[in-house]
Computed example of a mutant assay.
Amino acid sequence: MKKFRHELKFYITENDYLVLRQKLKLVLRQDHHSVNEQGYLIRSLYFDNVHDHDLHHKNNGVFLRKKFRIRIYNHQDDVIKLEKKSRQGEYILKASAPLNKEEYNKLLNWDYEFLKEKNHALFLEFYHYLYGEFLRPRVIVDYVREAYIGDISNVRITFDKELSFVTNSLDLFDSHTISEEVLAHPLMILEVKYDEFLPTYLRQLIQLDAHNRSAISKYVLCRMASIQYHGM
C-alpha cells in the first residue's frame, strides 16, 4: 500500500549543486533512468480545470491539494504514465498507472470512454475529474533531473535543472516544440524525499538548514509563466 512521504524543496545555486553532487555520489547511487551524468529529461503534461483550481489552491496555500499529469522520459513513448500527486502540507502521495500511445492520443482528442474499462482505480478517478471538474491539458513542463537514491527510508535526492514550459503545444510528442526557461541561471531546485526519516549522515551532508527552503511547484511556476507568455 502506498503511503505519504516527506518532500522538502529548496532553491540552490549552481555552486551549491556542484559541491552537493560530488558528496552524494560517494554515498548514493544514481537513478537508473539516467542517460548520462547529467540525468534524464522529464516531460509532463499537467491538467487543471477551466478555472485553474489546482493553480489557485497552491497559490492560496490550501493544505490538501492534488494534481493530475501525464509523464514521459527522454522524449520516448515506451513509458507513458498517468499520475496523481496528492499533498498534505510537506507530505506527498503519488499514484501512477501506465498508458500506451494509443490511449494517450485518445485523451488528447477528448476521447475518455476507454478509462472506464481500465482495471485501475486511478483511471476511473481521472475519468470522473475530466467530466465532473472539466479537467483539460494546461501546460507542458520540462526539466532535466539528476537523481540519487538510497535504500534507508527510501531516500531520493534530486537536482532539477533547466525548468521550462512549452510555448506552442500541448502534445508531449510534438517534435516541433519551443520551450522557455522559467528559472534564471544559476538557480535550480533541490528536492529531498524520504519515508519515515532522513538519515543523519545525509542531513549533515546536505546541510539542509543552509539552503533556502521554499514551497516550490514546477506546475505553478510554468503555468504562471505560460499565462504571462500568452497574455491570458
Rank of each mutant, 00 (worst) to 15 (best):
I152V: 15
L208I: 01
L130D: 04
P199C: 00
L135H: 12
E146H: 09
R145G: 12
F123I: 01
L124Y: 10
R203C: 03
E196Y: 14
L190I: 05
S169C: 01
I178M: 13
I206D: 03
Q204S: 10
E181H: 12
L135S: 07
F159A: 04
Y127M: 04
L124I: 13
L170C: 03
L130G: 00
K161V: 07
L122S: 11
V139T: 12
V166Q: 06
V192H: 03
V139F: 05
D209E: 14
Y143L: 08
V141W: 14
Y127E: 09
L202E: 08
V192L: 07
V144M: 15
Q207F: 04
L198C: 01
Y143T: 07
R136L: 08
L130C: 02
N154P: 07
L170R: 07
V144F: 14
S153N: 15
T177A: 00
L183S: 06
I189G: 05
L198E: 01
L130F: 08
L183F: 14
S175Q: 11
S179R: 10
L205V: 01
N154R: 13
Q204A: 05
M188D: 01
V166M: 03
Y194T: 05
E125F: 03
A147V: 09
L135I: 11
S169N: 06
F159C: 02
R156H: 09
E181T: 15
Y194A: 02
T200M: 10
P186R: 12
I206C: 02
L198F: 01
F126S: 03
R203V: 00
V192E: 14
V141F: 11
T177H: 01
Y194P: 06
N119M: 06
N168K: 05
L122A: 05
A147M: 10
L124P: 02
F114G: 05
D142V: 08
F173H: 05
N168P: 08
N154G: 05
N119I: 06
Y129T: 02
S175E: 12
F134K: 12
Y143G: 11
N168H: 05
L205P: 12
T167G: 03
L124W: 12
L163M: 12
T177S: 09
E191D: 08
V141T: 14
S179M: 07
I140Y: 11
K193D: 06
R156C: 13
Y143I: 06
I189C: 11
L202C: 01
S179K: 14
K118A: 02
L163H: 06
V141E: 14
L172P: 04
L115E: 08
L122Q: 14
D171H: 06
E125P: 02
F173C: 04
F159P: 07
H128K: 11
K193C: 02
E133Q: 15
S153W: 09
L198Q: 01
Y194W: 13
D142C: 10
L135W: 10
K118Y: 06
K116W: 06
P186I: 07
T167R: 14
D209P: 02
I206G: 00
